[in-house]
């Protein structure tokens, strides 16, 4: 496992200033959806037991056992996969660069990074009722000479994050001008 102080390809004198994941509401959403999924067989059982004689057959009981078992294993796996997807999406801002780590499904992982000096337009957007109430949003970072940009998705306090990154970029550029051959 990595730590916030020691991450892959860390440069000398580089330290993490911002470490971001999606807002905790994403975890709550995973929990809520999976709780609902877990309740479906229970509701089905209550209705079936009270209004039908379906479970009097041994064959139906046997098939139901494996179907319910397979279903719950799927729900558990689905919840954990979603959590892993959430947990492994990380955005880090260090005193030298911005690092974007995104887990896309189980078998795809994208790690991109850019020097702080190459950051240009930094904007944040807070869109929707829950995003406004719970104060989370997206931060878009346009890098010099490229169409692609970093997007910090659903991060808490998006406005504050974009302001801090802007300040860091300004400080970094000033520092580079005064000490062009040194790392910060």
């Amino acid at each position: 496992m990595y730590s916030r102080r020691h991450f892959p390809n860390q440069k000398p004198n580089e330290h993490v200033l911002l470490f971001l994941r999606r807002h905790w509401i994403v975890v709550l959403k995973i929990l809520f959806i999976n709780t609902l999924l877990a309740l479906i067989p229970i509701i089905f059982f209550i209705i079936t037991l009270n209004y039908t004689t379906l479970f009097e057959s041994d064959t139906v009981k046997a098939l139901t056992t494996i179907i319910v078992s397979a279903y719950y294993l799927f729900v558990i796996l689905y919840a954990f996969t979603n959590f892993v997807d959430y947990y492994l999406d990380v955005w880090m801002v260090t005193n030298q660069r911005v690092i974007n780590i995104e887990q896309k499904g189980l078998f795809s992982r994208v790690v991109s990074e850019k020097d702080l000096g190459r950051m240009q337009d930094i904007t944040s957007d807070v869109d929707g009722f829950w995003a406004t109430v719970l104060k989370f949003g997206n931060v878009h970072i346009q890098t010099a000479g490229e169409k692609e940009r970093f997007v910090f998705k659903q991060v808490p306090f998006a406005d504050e994050v974009s302001r801090r990154i802007s300040n860091l970029v300004s400080e970094y550029q000033k520092m580079k001008k005064t000490k062009p051959n040194e790392n910060l």
């Binding site: 954990f80 996969t81 947990y87 990380v90």
Partner: peptide, 29 residues
Amino acid sequence: FLFIYLIYILIFLFFSFFNLYHMLRFGFV
């Protein structure tokens, strides 16, 4: 049906292994 179920369990274990691997390999403490 039990045989089909056992194949399903193997697929489940395969995906579980990869999830756990990702957490241990790439997760932050």
